[in-house]
Design a protein around this nucleic acid. Sequence first.
DNA 1: TTCCATTTGTTCGTATGTATG
DNA 2: CCATACATACGAACAAATGGA
Lengths: 235, 235
Amino acid sequence: MFNELASVKKIAKGCVNMEDNSVKRYPLSKQVSDKLEAMIESGDYKVGEKIPTEPQLMEIFQVSRNTIREAVKSLTWAGVLEVKQGDGTYVRSSDRFDANMKQKYAQVSLKDIAEARNSIEVTISRIAAIRRNEDDIEQIAEALRKRKGLKENIKENTKADIDFHMCIAEASHNTILIDLYRSISYYLEEQIAERHMVSKLKVEEIDELHEKLFLAIKEGKPDMAEMSSRDILDI
Amino acid sequence: MFNELASVKKIAKGCVNMEDNSVKRYPLSKQVSDKLEAMIESGDYKVGEKIPTEPQLMEIFQVSRNTIREAVKSLTWAGVLEVKQGDGTYVRSSDRFDANMKQKYAQVSLKDIAEARNSIEVTISRIAAIRRNEDDIEQIAEALRKRKGLKENIKENTKADIDFHMCIAEASHNTILIDLYRSISYYLEEQIAERHMVSKLKVEEIDELHEKLFLAIKEGKPDMAEMSSRDILDI
DNA sequence: TTCCATTTGTTCGTATGTATG
DNA sequence: CCATACATACGAACAAATGGA
């Protein structure tokens, strides 16, 4: 079953000598976790699947059980693996990023989270206005159309709204800001979906504000984009 | 030196019996980390201070070194402790919130990370100008003084600079923004420490910009704070 | 500067407990 | 009940980094 794993390159014990006299530490446990993560990312083990047992991993990587456990533990804390005592270890997610977010947000007030999201949204709008390309503009325009289309269905509307802002986030071309914004947005979506329900403005006015934001980004005006974004949030 | 610790209640080995027949596992390492965290939260060990060495902790809690290390590790990953090989273990934060973002950031380009940090810094400056209180202003002023003081030692200077901006972050009174900023800052501190070395401006001009940011926050001018913050980063 | 004691880092072996199927 | 698999804990040895003599 794990024959293909027998071809795993022998793990180098101790340190790795670099050019000159510099030495880079590369702990066995780190080597193992790196290899495991690479295997997961390359699809050797898919999400939901069980990875080999600890004794099997000992055999595969030729290290002690403690080292295996150390590696598995780090991937567990990174959200990549999920361990079930008496059963086995499963692949939870191939994405290292949003796994931990939920746990972290659990204790923080919704108000702070919303504010953090809004802050990032404003700053993202500014960057997007500077860095967007033609493709981004097209994507945002499309999302804006969809957003305008539906009015009655709240859930659909919320989703369209998030899509619109996610398109803007993508246009910032900054991986970490995108991931931060997405993680927080999805978390908030689960918690509340009524930002537009408490709005003091009419639907038409909100649409207009979004239109303005789009134009600012399209025309590459960061200050205007930032202001428009703030206007939307200050509803 | 650690006599007051001798009074720590003996840690119960094995399991804790609950009412009925339910049994709740309470691992030694978890007991140790809980106690350590409680001590930190209660002020027995303050932020920046060194906690007892591993052998001392073994003596205090009467458990093996591996157990101590497991406990310390969990607090390290929770952002509460900071371990320095060959030196000791320090209290980084009494707040358990900032989980290990380091691993999450590992695959993202430094450029994106720096930009994300700068974005958050700008938005934090704006919020701080709105929400700061007298105590915040005093803290920031103090950090500004320290920042101005030393000029030659690069490492010290970097630390003072981070402290200054962390004070501003604290003044925003938004837990998640503070933690995001702190996590990213610490990560960047390890990666690069030369933001001011590549600066095109003279030291005096940089100082002046920081002074301006402080005044904007002190006088409660969000727009001016945001602009000043951006000026500092656009160096 | 070198040397050395201290402190943490990594890895192994071993034993025993607990949960699952 | 039992074989399997993971959880916890102890002890030991050596490596590597730090700070001070």
